[in-house]
Structures are given as structure tokens and as C-alpha cells.
């Protein structure tokens, strides 16, 4: 298949492997698809993301890219650039991930340049992307400090897309935003998915949010996949008790059932 697949990923920490972060996690995302990775703190969401980015080496299990074994944690030198073109990530707080001294347009341009575009092409690509994520000339010329939270997150998304990655990991990328801004970013992500053909791995603890941006959902609990299926099915007819508990804990769920 064309896309990313993880098989039986296991990751333990500690000298004797006493902390099990991932305990046999398997799922796949097709090229251009969108998968929600749902779970609470300690469920293994971020460890999975770190392995896909090559920041962590799994204890066992494998990652396949287009059906071929892929080991981003082994990448060195030139391979790192290639790795970065496969999967990019956008974090919860763009303030911590954008260079505070670079103007937004330079941050996006330098990423594209690093990946082989000429300065002129990189500049063009940066302008194009910033326009696409809804940042005007004035915002593009600013440093992150001068932007609002929503604008910064748009900038972080543009920078991640600068290298035309095949997949974008969104790690709680809308969690810190106000609902009105969150709605704008979710709509933007859907547009980008269509326009750029990029696939999403959407990591979140917010169950309502995954409905708007993903086709499939995986529910993780203590390093294990407890439920996997089409997002709408997982949320409307959950099979695992843990998924049901999660859904019941969402604010407003009780009043909704009554009405």
C-alpha cells in the first residue's frame, strides 16, 4: 500500500525495560488519508509520533513506508533531509517551535531552501504557502512575537509544508487555541489536505475535534490500541469500554443524551 504502516511497535524505557510506553501498536494511514490518534497522557501517542519522526528507536516492531521497511531513527547526514520530507510535525505551542528571531517568511523560506530549492524558488514557495494558510504580507514580515496564537499556528503549518512532506503529524496542534480560532485552523487543515495531498496523523485527546479532520481513528490506552475504525463509527458506536468512558467524560455529553 502507499502510505505509512506501523506493525507491532513496542517501546520500553528504563534499564530493565520496566516502563512500557508502547505495547504492540499497529495501524496504517494511506497517502493523503487522515488518521486520529486518540488517548490520554501516557497512552503512547507522542512516543508513536517520535518514532515516526526518527527521534526514538522502537524496542521492536517495524515501520513500513509504501510497503517497504522504513527506519527513520537510523537516518544520518543526507538521509535526514529525506526523512524530513517524509514526515513533518506541528506541535501544540508554535511559540516554542518557531525561531523567535526569524521573520515568518524567512522561517518558511529557509526550510524550503534547505531542501534544495533555489533562493528564488524557495521565496516563491514561502509566499505561496503563507498565502494559502491565510497570512498576509504584514504578518509574513513579522517575527512570531508579533502574531496571535492562531497566526503563529498558521505559520508553523506553512513551515512544515514548505518541504512538501507526505505526512504531517499534528500533535495537539489546536489544543491551545480558542474555539473560534480552532475552527479556522481545522477548516484550513481540511483545505490543505485537498490542495497539497498531504496525509495527516492527528494526535489529540479531544474526541470532538477528530470528527472534523480524520477518516479513521485509533484509540490508545496504556500503549495498546483498544479500538480502531472509521472515526464516525468509533465515536458514535464505540465497542471498547475505555472509548465509552472517554466519550462519557466529554463535557456536555450528559445533557446531549437527554435532549
Amino acid at each position: 500500500m502507499s502510505g505509512i504502516e506501523v506493525r507491532e511497535l513496542r517501546k520500553t524505557f528504563g534499564h530493565r525495560g520496566e516502563v512500557v510506553a508502547l505495547d504492540g501498536v499497529s495501524f496504517s494511514v494511506e497517502q493523503g488519508g487522515a488518521l486520529g490518534l486518540i488517548g490520554e497522557s501516557g497512552s503512547g501517542k507522542s512516543t508513536t509520533a517520535r518514532i515516526l519522526l526518527g527521534l526514538e528507536r522502537p524496542t521492536s516492531g517495524e515501520v513500513l513506508r509504501d510497503g517497504v521497511p522504513y527506519e527513520p531513527w537510523r537516518a544520518s547526514g543526507r538521509q535526514r533531509l529525506e526523512r524530513a520530507r517524509s514526515i513533518q510535525i506541528v506541535f501544540q505551542d508554535p511559540y516554542l517551535s518557531l525561531n523567535p528571531r526569524l521573520r515568518i517568511v524567512d522561517a518558511v523560506r529557509s526550510a524550503a531552501e534547505l531542501h534544495g530549492l533555489t533562493r528564488a524558488d524557495a521565496e516563491r514557495r514561502a509566499r505561496e504557502l503563507l498565502d494559502e494558510v491565510g497570512l498576509g504580507i504584514r504578518e509574513s514580515q513579522s517575527t512570531p512575537r508579533a502574531l496571535s496564537g492562531g497566526q503563529r499556528q498558521r505559520a508553523a503549518i506553512a513551515r512544515a509544508l514548505a518541504v512538501r512532506p507526505r505526512f504531517l503529524i499534528l500533535d495537539e496542534a489546536v489544543a491551545a487555541l480558542d474555539v473560534s480560532v480552532q475552527a479556522q485552523i481545522l477548516n484550513l487543515l481540511n483545505e490543505l489536505r485537498r490542495a497539497e495531498g498531504v496525509g495527516f496523523l492527528f494526535i489529540t485527546h479531544n474526541l470532538a475535534v477528530v470528527r472534523y479532520v480524520t477518516d479513521e481513528a485509533v484509540v490508545l490506552h496504556r500503549g495498546c490500541v483498544v479500538e480502531l475504525g472509521p472515526t464516525e463509527r468509533v465515536l458514535s458506536a464505540p465497542e471498547h469500554p475505555y472509548t465509552r468512558d472517554l466519550l462519557a467524560a466529554v463535557p456536555g455529553s450528559i445533557t446531549r443524551e437527554e435532549s
Binding site: 496571535s148 474555539v179 480552532q182 470528527r211 455529553s253
Partner: peptide
């Protein structure tokens, strides 16, 4: 009303774009 509409929900139509509040 606009805040309530832009809140993602577990029920209702999720295929249409989420209404958002334009501007800042």
C-alpha cells in the same frame, strides 16, 4: 451563538466546514 457554533461536537454533521468567527 458564534462561539457555540464553532465548538466541535460529538454529534451532528461533521462533514461541512466548522463555522468560525472571521477576524480577530
Amino acid at each position: 451563538a458564534a462561539l457555540l457554533e464553532s465548538t466541535p461536537r460529538l454529534t451532528g454533521d461533521a462533514t461541512r466546514a466548522l463555522p468560525s468567527i472571521p477576524g480577530v
